[in-house]
Design a protein around this nucleic acid. Sequence first.
DNA 1: CGTAGTATTGAAACGGATCAATATCTGTGG
DNA 2: CCACAGATATTGATCCGTTTCAATACTACG
Lengths: 241, 241
Amino acid sequence: MEKRASSVPPVTPTLRAIPFTASGTGAEALLLSPAQREQLAQIGVRIRLPARMVILREDSAADWVFAISDGCVKCYRELPSGKRALTAFLFNHDIFGLAENGRYVNTVQAISNVTLFRVPTMDLANLLKQDGNLQFQFLSKVTHELRSAQRRATMINRRDAVGRFAMFIALMANASPVLTDGQGVALPMARSDIADYLGLSLESVSRSAAELERSGLVKFENRHLARIVDGARMAKLAAAV
Amino acid sequence: MEKRASSVPPVTPTLRAIPFTASGTGAEALLLSPAQREQLAQIGVRIRLPARMVILREDSAADWVFAISDGCVKCYRELPSGKRALTAFLFNHDIFGLAENGRYVNTVQAISNVTLFRVPTMDLANLLKQDGNLQFQFLSKVTHELRSAQRRATMINRRDAVGRFAMFIALMANASPVLTDGQGVALPMARSDIADYLGLSLESVSRSAAELERSGLVKFENRHLARIVDGARMAKLAAAV
DNA sequence: CGTAGTATTGAAACGGATCAATATCTGTGG
DNA sequence: CCACAGATATTGATCCGTTTCAATACTACG
C-alpha cells in the first residue's frame, strides 16, 4: 500500500479516479490506459511553473484544462469581504480548470514548483465526446472531487479546531502522494492556507498544532512536515465527527 | 425568467446543467435533447414515492441512478457521533445515486412526495460510454454539483448564523423551482434539516429566522414559505461573505 | 546577514452550543 | 370536524471555545 511520487514525471498525463462500480479487490483506482494518455498527450503540452505562480484566475476565460503531473496547487475564491475561501488542495493525478459558462470558477495558484499537463478546453471537450471511456474517467474523477468537497464541508462542520486540524492531517496523509512513506505527512501549504481551508483563524490552526504536539499525537519535524506519533488516537480523533 | 414546476411531470427524464463553454446569451442551462430523453426513458422507469421515504441508503449496493422529475429530497450521511451531515437538497432536474466503488455514498430521503426517474447503474454507464454527448451532460451536471458543494462550504464558513440562513434562503430561491414566482421562497424541509445543512444548531436556525423577520428582511408566511421583503438588504447580507 | 512575511503565544470578548421550558404544528382517530 | 398526542419549533439563560487584538518569535529569501 505504498504511495510514492514518481521520481521522473511521465510525459503523458495521468489521472486517478475512484470507479463507480465495484472492482475486484475493493477501492482500486482507475487509471488512464496508455492509448488514452497518448491521445491526451497529442492535444496538450507539458509545462513547468514555479511556486507561488497564479496559474489561472476566477472569472477569466477558461481556455485550458490542467492535470497535475507533479507538485501541489491551491484553489480558492476571493470573497467580497476580502477573505479567501480555499476550496481544495490538489496533487498528482488531479485535474483543475473545468469551467462554468466558459469562465473559471476558482483561482488556482502553485504552492510548490509544479509540472502540469495543459489541454485546450475545446479540444478536450471534443475528445471526451468522441471517447466515451475516456470521458467516463473524467466523470468518475469529478464525482470523486464532489465527494472531497462534501468531506471538507463535514470537516468544517466540526466545532473543535483541534479535531479539524487532525482530520486535515489525516486527509493530507491520503491525498498528498509525497513523503507519506515514513509516517511523515507533508504539509507544503502555509498555515494561513490551512486556516482558510478549514475555516479557522490562523491562530487557531497554530494553537491546534501546538495542542496536538503537546498531547503526543503528532510531532512536527518542522512547519511543513508532521510525523504521526500515536496513529490510533489520531485516527480516533479524526473520526470523532 | 419565470421558473415554474410543470404541472404534469414529463414521462421522460430531464436534466439541467450549466455548460462548460459560454453560450450565446450567458448563463443558459443545458437540457437533454428529445432523442436523449427517449434513450434514457427506454432503460429506466418512472416511480412515485411518498414523503419521508428513504430512497437509498449509504454503503448499500448502488444498483440505480435517479433523476428527479418532481419534488424534493435530502442527501445526508450519518456521522459516527450520531449527528447527520446534510450534503444537499435536490430538486427537479437533479440527479443522485452516483456511486463510488459500487456503493452509495449518501443516504437519500424524500422530503415531499417525489416523482423519480430510475435507471440501472450498469445500463446508464454503458449508455454514457456509447453516447459522448449525453455523458457530457452528466459531466457538466456533476461539475455543477461540485460547485454547489463548494458554495455550501463557503456558506458554512461564515461565522454569523443569520448570514448563513440568509444565504440559504437566497440559495433556495434559485435552486428550488417551486413557488419562486411571487417572491415567495419554498422551504419544504424541516428546520432541523436546515440546521444540519448549515452546520448550525436547530435553535440557531430558529433564532436566525426570528432575527430576519424582526429586521424586516423576510416575512415568514409559515414555516415553509418565506417571503423576501427587502430584496436589496437581503442580497447584501447574503453576499457579505 | 538583515528584513519582510509567516507563525506562535497571550488576554479578552463575542457568538453559537447546550440545557431547559414552552409553544406550535401535523396527522391520526374519534 | 374536532381533539389529542407526538413531533417540531420557538424562546430564554448560561457556558465554552473560537475570534480578535496585540506583542513577540521565527524563517526564508534576497
